[in-house]
Design a protein around this nucleic acid. Structure first.
Length: 762
DNA sequence: CAGTGAGCGAGCTTCCGCTTGACTT
């Protein structure tokens, strides 16, 4: 036994492959990279040609030891890591670390986990491609140099513990740039005109949109007057046959976008659920940039579609990835067994699986055939034209299963059914409604749309999209938030029965849900990097270095020469910036306090962004923290002054004062030396005595319900917490098993639960 | 846990990409 040892990256993959192969093969996994640059220091000998210093990662020591002993027993070791830059490096690190001998080591690669693909790979082994390994080394060293030289500058010039890097700093910049585009955006008002028409012999009405937009109410009215009493008729009917094509199967980025649009998942949620499905053997690998499907998958899809929907719904399609920098080491994300239309699991798992199944199936289905009709309604005295677009599905094709979601709503609705109409036919105008609209500002990124943008720019990899968003959130650079919109007025001008009527209406605009907003520190860091290291946060920086990595991989460039060319000018800037006697605190004078005449300044302080009343040399200057979401660069004097109104006395209850303020954990009221959080919907600036008292009563009621039972002998309490009842013993908390009534627990029962939990922990 | 906004200085922070668990509040 054990003549052959195959090493792959993922344990789930190892398990699958082992099933395909006979007893002569042992399949183990490396769990990704096994070595990395030293964690403690730079890990690069700059003066010695950027020689990297590699260490076995702490969490991989056991794995390496295990692989080492398995390799010793094996006759041949097959290095089957992924066929991309990182995978090639993993193969080489394994070769080097396990001290394998060249004559008993073979490098193989397969892009799909099927028996044929693996057997085929075993028949065509090759050597480790050292050029590709060096390209990976260049990538690794560059990222370390950028990250570990830029971050310390931020610690010194902005704030400790911050970070910068090739990927995260550009991701942040995208959000910052977008926010600034939005802040300078001035919405333009215009009038969109809709005509409602009827025709003889039918009660149904048709809505048609005018092809001209007016910029003022006067212009709009002039037009409406012209329409009054005009004779409208159909001047053109254009019919056109078109087709619609299904989307390619899922890559990681596409899956994250669709799961966000259709299921409301965060990118992290999507990846966690997908990982579960993958480990259960239900889907193929979930971190991929490839849209390719194995021929086995394509054939199974063809069969399934024919059986379920009919042969005419099937169309075999081969997809090729178009995205910049794609390495295509894996297949697209698809169900492992395509005829599995549904699975067992949590509701989130079922939903995600269903999405993946539908996307995969539809990608192998026929085009939808549509008949589009454009109808134009005019009047001889009027140069503007009304038009209606209708779309009729002649053959639904892939639409039977799946339609890709959209980020933005389509303004022009399309109707599907058209009554019988003919050219020249008279259309009776029932009403014309002109609505004031505003041009749309650019929209803020969602997690998923940020990933989409990063992918387009070739920045980051499928395995890093979710972690990158986590990093810039953890650093306090960005915030994912909902924001309420503001009410605004708009005018509606209508023409009905020869009367022109103006109505002012109200709408809520600018509501945001789950959008990414920059925080003050994110703005400061981006400005700092843009000023001193513009080339690094240039959107094309990655693309530029990637082309060098390609040259290295092709053997046309030496890796450390490429790094040297980058590093020398870069390091000069690092030294120069470090020496400059500046500190970025984003200080901005907002105005003066009308009461005291003192200057109001906003800046970043030791504990975050603040507003200051009085100049820096004023010994009696006062401070107050900014609220979440308030930005130094655009806070108004009114908002800044309002911050000084807290803490404020709201009123009295039982002769004791109620105070409202904002603390470290958000707005609260203080009463009788206890603190009560205001939550999302109450405002400390406006909360009144009555509201505060009802909050206090509610809080008191909850407190009284908190204690279920107490056993002071062992310092045990049974309490009601945020997530239900639990046992508290000293400072440790313990879960109460399901199906156990917390009220029924006596001291002995509690002790058993505690003992069991402690035993399990060990 | 519901503040803070001084200063000294030791010791620490940090990157991107591969992989999963191990913690659970």
């Amino acid at each position: 036994m054990g003549e052959n040892l195959i090493i792959v990256e993922s344990p789930a993959k190892a398990k699958t492959i082992e099933k395909f192969l006979g007893k002569n093969y042992i399949v183990k996994s490396s769990f990704g990279h096994i070595r990395d640059l030293s964690k403690k220091n730079l890990g690069i000998d700059i003066d010695n040609g950027f020689e990297p210093f590699y260490e076995i990662s702490a969490d991989k020591k056991k794995i390496v030891a295990d692989l080492c002993s398995a390799a010793k027993k094996a006759e041949i070791v097959w290095l089957a890591s992924d066929e991309d830059r990182e995978g090639e490096a993993i193969a080489w690190h394994l070769f080097d670390t396990l001290k394998l001998s060249p004559d008993k080591t073979k490098r193989i690669a397969f892009h799909e986990i099927t028996k044929d693909a693996i057997l085929n790979a075993i028949e065509t082994p090759r050597d480790i491609d050292m050029n590709l390994v060096m390209a990976q080394q260049a990538r690794r060293v560059l990222d370390r140099l950028v990250g570990f030289e830029l971050s310390p500058i931020l610690w010194k010039k902005v704030q400790p513990k911050l970070s910068a890097g090739r990927v995260q700093s550009v991701a942040l910049r995208l959000i910052v740039d977008r926010e600034r585009e939005i802040s300078i955006f001035k919405p333009q008002a215009y009038y969109r005109v809709e005509g409602i028409f009827a025709h003889d012999g039918s009660k149904s009405k048709i809505k048609a949109i005018l092809n001209t937009k007016f910029s003022s109410a006067e212009e709009t009215e002039t037009f409406l007057k012209k329409c009054d009493g005009a004779h409208f008729y159909i001047s053109a009917i254009d019919k056109k046959d078109t087709t619609r094509t299904p989307s390619a199967p899922f890559t990681t980025s596409a899956l994250q976008q669709e799961a966000a649009r259709k299921l409301g998942f965060s990118v992290n949620q999507t990846m966690t659920i997908a990982q579960k499905l993958y480990e259960a053997g239900l889907i193929t690998y979930m971190r991929t940039d490839s849209t390719n499907l194995s021929s086995l998958a394509i054939n199974t899809a063809k069969e399934s579609i024919s059986k379920m929907y009919g042969v005419e719904y099937s169309k075999v399609r081969h997809y090729h990835t178009k995205v910049k920098g794609a390495q295509e080491a894996h297949e697209a994300i698809r169900p492992t067994y395509i005829n599995n239309t549904s699975i067992e699991g949590s509701s989130a798992e079922k939903k995600l699986y269903d999405l993946i199944w539908k996307r995969t199936i539809s990608s192998q289905m026929a085009d939808a055939k549509l008949e589009k009709t454009d109808i134009t309604i005019t009047s001889d005295n009027i140069s503007e034209k009304f038009s209606v677009q209708a779309e009729r599905i002649v053959f639904d094709g892939f639409l039977k299963v799946y339609i890709e979601g959209k980020d933005e709503d389509d303004e022009n609705e399309k109707i599907t059914l058209l009554p019988q109409l003919s050219k020249g036919q008279t259309m009776i105008n029932k009403e014309i409604i002109a609505t004031e609209k505003y041009t749309l500002r650019p929209s803020r990124y969602t997690e998923a749309s940020l990933v989409k943008k990063l992918e387009e720019l070739g920045i980051g990899r499928p395995s890093t999209y979710a972690p990158t968003i986590s990093t810039i959130s953890k650093r306090g650079y960005i915030l994912k938030e909902d924001r309420a919109g503001i009410e605004r007025e708009y005018l509606e001008i209508s023409l009905k029965e020869s009367k022109i009527v103006r109505t002012t209406r109200k709408e809520i605009s600018g509501t945001e849900k789950g959008k990414l907003f920059p925080e003050n520190i994110g703005l400061v860091v981006t400005d700092f990097l843009a000023k001193n290291f513009e080339d690094i946060i240039d959107y094309n920086f990655t693309a530029k270095v990637e082309s060098d990595f390609d040259l290295i991989a092709a053997g046309d460039m030496v890796w450390n020469n490429a790094i040297g060319e980058f590093y020398v000018p870069f390091h000069k800037k690092v030294v120069k910036t470090m020496q400059e006697n500046t500190h970025s605190n984003a200080e901005r004078t907002i105005g003066t306090d009308p009461k005291s005449g003192k200057t109001i300044i906003a800046r970043i302080g030791r504990f975050g962004p603040l507003v200051q009343k009085g100049t820096n040399d004023d010994p009696e200057k006062q401070f107050v923290s900014l609220k979440k979401g308030q930005l130094i660069e655009n806070i108004t004097i009114e908002d800044a002054l309002q911050l000084f109104e807290l803490p404020r006395t709201v009123g009295k209850y039982n002769d004791k004062e109620i105070i409202a303020a904002i603390g470290r954990f958000g707005p609260y009221i203080k009463y009788n030396s206890s603190f009560i959080s205001l939550g999302k919907y109450l405002d400390p600036y406006t909360i009144n005595e009555k509201e505060a008292i009802s909050l206090i009563d509610e809080h008191a009621k909850k407190e009284s319900e908190k204690y279920i039972s107490e056993f002071p002998k062992h310092n045990i309490q049974v309490l009601n917490g945020r997530y239900g009842a639990y046992i508290k013993c000293g400072k440790d908390n313990f879960k109460i098993p399901k199906n156990t009534d917390p009220k029924s627990l006596d001291e002995a029962a509690c002790l058993i639960i505690i003992e069991n939990a402690k035993a399990k922990k060990k």
